[in-house]
Design a binder for these strands. Structure first.
Length: 488
DNA sequence: TGTAAGTTATG
DNA sequence: ATAACTTAC
């Protein structure tokens, strides 16, 4: 094949939510093509329907791209950073490079899929090969359905169906040992390097004020850190995961969520490592591993929902809630919740953990969300947006599905009458007040909490919430039909 | 992956 | 008196 034939042109790898070099099928396939590889990340805040990242996620993105860029450079090709509409950026990049093939790993949100489909059509019409890959989900949503052919809307049968599949998920791919850069250096005079934005010019890091000190103190960002986190979790914490995961003072969960969110690690890699741990494990290990993998499964389930219901973050999955009498959201109560001064210790501790570290323990997320929805009667979407802006692991599928779950309007949702009592939850899961003290300071005396009074009476708020939700429950269940199949 | 109020068991 | 268990919300 001549270097001058069109088919010999370079390959473009478009990275999105897959900021890793190992187990990256698009990167591996492009590398195996044996031609120069252009790796690009596009910051797209203009294409129709693409939701811009929140502040904490942007902080993570900055550091993740920095690490990835250094790794790719060592492997032989720099990371090209571009900003703008993805379609236009890809079009320009094809013209600049003479690329003859483009590769990416698939996304599952509605606007993302529509954009990717349009770009794939454009690339093929322009004479390029275009290849997309399964990389970020163990089970792609169109490959699993109920006996009646419908999308699963209950987690347990969804996960059972996944576990019963005859073909196990593929083994993760190794990282390429070297990636040929663009332009090719060997066959002629070194060409001009491709223009790339300076990462700092994207201004992903907060300034004036810089609120990121607590994030930087808590998190190690990047692919290598993700694997170190997985390793320490499996060797040190998996054996007590099933019970330990509920104790917010302990660092007993995997804390892999932001790494997974940005694709610094893949679920295939997680599954393989946990499988290795349970091959020579006790019955107790099997129980803990199953519990942990079920949490990975909830992420799969959430993406399954997002694919079939692209409006998951904005529309009630159960439309009985469309007329729900939510309280006005621009209130001092909302501000108090956001700032962690509701007078309810566990809620405030959680909201302060979130503000300081970009993260909140799972159990506390449920309690804090339940408080906003069922004690303050504020629309779940208001909370979803706050978490979207403040969580380093803010995920388009998990965040939306989980808020709907707490609200009771989601798929396989908590029943409307499940109202967490934040005082009881604290007594049960943080009996020594280690978590409370960590974020609220040493506020308690011998017995009674020396803490500001709650902004609502918990018992009364619970009663009025149950009344409001009881009206919803009297209506016939009304699930919006899935639309994901049509979006392409 | 809930809570609260009730009933029953136990000392 | 209190733990253990059941049940409705």
């Amino acid at each position: 094949m001549s270097l001058h034939s069109p088919a010999a042109g370079p390959s473009i790898v478009w990275l999105r939510d897959d900021l890793r070099v190992a187990d990256n099928p698009a990167l591996t396939a492009a590398t195996q093509r044996g031609l120069p590889v252009v790796v690009v990340y596009i910051r797209d805040e203009v294409s129709q329907g693409i939701r811009p990242l929140g502040g904490a996620a942007n902080w993570w993105l900055h550091h993740s791209l920095g690490r990835l860029s250094a790794r790719l450079t060592r492997l032989g090709t720099p990371l090209v950073l571009r900003q703008g509409g993805a379609h236009e950026v890809i079009r320009d990049l094809i013209r600049e490079t003479g690329a003859t093939a483009i590769f990416w790993n698939r996304r599952y949100g509605g606007p993302e899929r529509a954009l990717d489909a349009a770009i794939k059509d454009y690339a093929k019409a322009s004479g390029l090969e275009a290849h997309s890959f399964q990389a970020n989900l163990l089970v792609e949503p169109w490959t699993i359905a109920t006996g009646a052919g419908n999308p699963y809307t209950v987690f347990t049968p969804f996960w059972k169906a996944f576990l019963a599949r005859p073909e196990p998920p593929r083994s993760p791919l190794p990282a390429p040992k070297a990636i040929p850069g663009f332009p090719a250096g060997a066959s002629g005079a070194p060409g001009q390097a491709l223009p790339s934005d300076d990462l700092d010019s994207w201004k992903l890091l907060p300034k004036h004020p810089d609120w990121s000190a607590g994030l930087a103190a808590r998190w190690q960002v990047g692919e290598q850190a993700a694997h170190e986190q997985l390793e320490s979790f499996v060797t040190e914490r998996l054996s007590r995961y099933a019970d330990g995961r509920d104790v917010p003072a302990d660092f007993a969960t995997s804390e892999l969520s932001p790494h997974l969110r940005f694709g610094e690690i893949s679920p295939f890699q997680i599954l393989e490592r946990v499988d290795a741990a349970r091959r020579n494990g006790s019955a107790e290990t099997l129980r803990n591993a199953a519990k942990f993998l079920a949490e990975v499964g909830w992420r799969e389930f959430s993406y399954n929902l997002l694919f079939h219901w692209p409006a998951l973050a904005t529309a009630n999955f159960d439309r009985r809630f469309d007329g729900f009498p939510w309280a006005p959201s621009s209130t001092p109560a909302l501000t108090a919740w956001q700032e962690g001064r509701t007078g309810v210790p566990l809620v405030d501790a959680g909201m302060r953990e979130l503000w300081q570290t970009g993260y909140m323990h799972n159990r506390v997320r449920m309690v804090a969300a339940s408080f906003l929805i069922k004690n303050l009667l504020i629309d779940w979407r208001v909370g979803e947006e706050w978490f979207w802006d403040t969580l380093v692991d803010a995920d388009p599928a998990n965040n939306a599905a989980s808020w709907q779950w707490v609200a009771g309007c989601g798929a396989d949702a908590a029943p409307y009458f499940r109202v967490f009592n934040p005082v009881l939850q604290a007594e049960k899961f943080d009996p020594k007040r280690v978590y409370l003290r960590r974020y609220l300071g040493d506020f308690d005396g011998a017995d009674a909490l020396d803490y500001p009074a709650p902004i609502v009476d918990l018992a009364n708020a619970r009663t009025s919430a149950l009344e409001a939700f009881a009206h919803v429950s009297s209506l016939p269940r009304d699930i919006a039909p899935p639309t994901g199949f049509d979006a392409l």
